[in-house]
Amino acid sequence: MDSNIVLYGASGHCKVIIDILQCNNQPVQAIIDDAPKLGTILDIPIIHTKQFDFSTAQNMILSIGNNKVRKRLAAELPFNFSTAIHPKAIVSNHASLGEGTVVMGGAVVNPDATIGKHCIINTGAVIEHDCRIEDYAHISPNASLAGGVTVGEGTQVGIGASVIQGIKIGKWVVIGAGAVIINDIPDNVVVVGNPGRILKK
Rank of each mutant, 00 (worst) to 15 (best):
2 D>H: 10
2 D>A: 11
3 S>V: 04
6 V>K: 01
6 V>F: 02
7 L>Y: 06
7 L>F: 10
8 Y>I: 15
11 S>I: 06
11 S>E: 03
11 S>M: 12
12 G>Q: 08
13 H>A: 09
14 C>R: 05
15 K>D: 03
16 V>Y: 01
16 V>L: 03
18 I>Y: 06
19 D>A: 14
21 L>F: 02
24 N>Y: 00
27 P>K: 05
28 V>I: 14
30 A>H: 02
33 D>P: 05
34 D>R: 07
34 D>G: 08
36 P>E: 14
36 P>W: 09
38 L>G: 02
39 G>E: 13
40 T>M: 04
40 T>N: 10
41 I>S: 01
41 I>G: 10
41 I>Q: 06
42 L>T: 02
42 L>V: 04
44 I>N: 09
45 P>L: 00
47 I>G: 05
48 H>D: 12
48 H>S: 15
49 T>G: 01
49 T>E: 06
51 Q>A: 14
51 Q>D: 15
52 F>R: 00
55 S>W: 01
57 A>R: 14
58 Q>C: 08
58 Q>G: 15
59 N>I: 00
60 M>T: 12
61 I>G: 08
65 G>A: 05
65 G>S: 06
67 N>W: 08
68 K>R: 14
70 R>M: 00
73 L>W: 06
77 L>K: 04
79 F>A: 04
81 F>R: 09
82 S>N: 04
83 T>P: 00
84 A>I: 04
86 H>S: 15
86 H>P: 05
87 P>R: 07
88 K>S: 14
91 V>E: 03
91 V>H: 07
93 N>A: 14
94 H>D: 14
102 V>N: 03
102 V>E: 00
102 V>D: 01
108 V>H: 11
109 V>T: 07
109 V>F: 03
109 V>E: 05
110 N>S: 15
110 N>I: 12
112 D>Q: 15
113 A>G: 10
114 T>L: 12
114 T>S: 13
115 I>S: 10
116 G>N: 13
121 I>K: 02
121 I>W: 04
121 I>G: 11
122 N>K: 07
125 A>L: 08
125 A>S: 15
128 E>D: 15
128 E>T: 05
129 H>T: 12
130 D>N: 15
134 E>C: 13
139 I>Y: 09
141 P>W: 03
142 N>L: 13
142 N>F: 11
146 A>L: 07
148 G>R: 13
149 V>H: 05
149 V>Y: 09
150 T>C: 10
150 T>F: 01
152 G>C: 08
153 E>V: 13
162 S>Y: 00
165 Q>S: 13
168 K>M: 04
169 I>Q: 07
171 K>W: 02
171 K>H: 14
171 K>D: 10
172 W>K: 14
176 G>V: 08
176 G>S: 09
176 G>M: 05
177 A>W: 03
178 G>R: 11
178 G>C: 12
179 A>H: 09
180 V>Q: 07
183 N>W: 00
188 N>C: 09
190 V>Q: 12
191 V>W: 03
191 V>L: 15
193 G>Y: 05
195 P>R: 12
196 G>D: 03
198 I>N: 11
198 I>L: 06
201 K>W: 04
201 K>T: 15
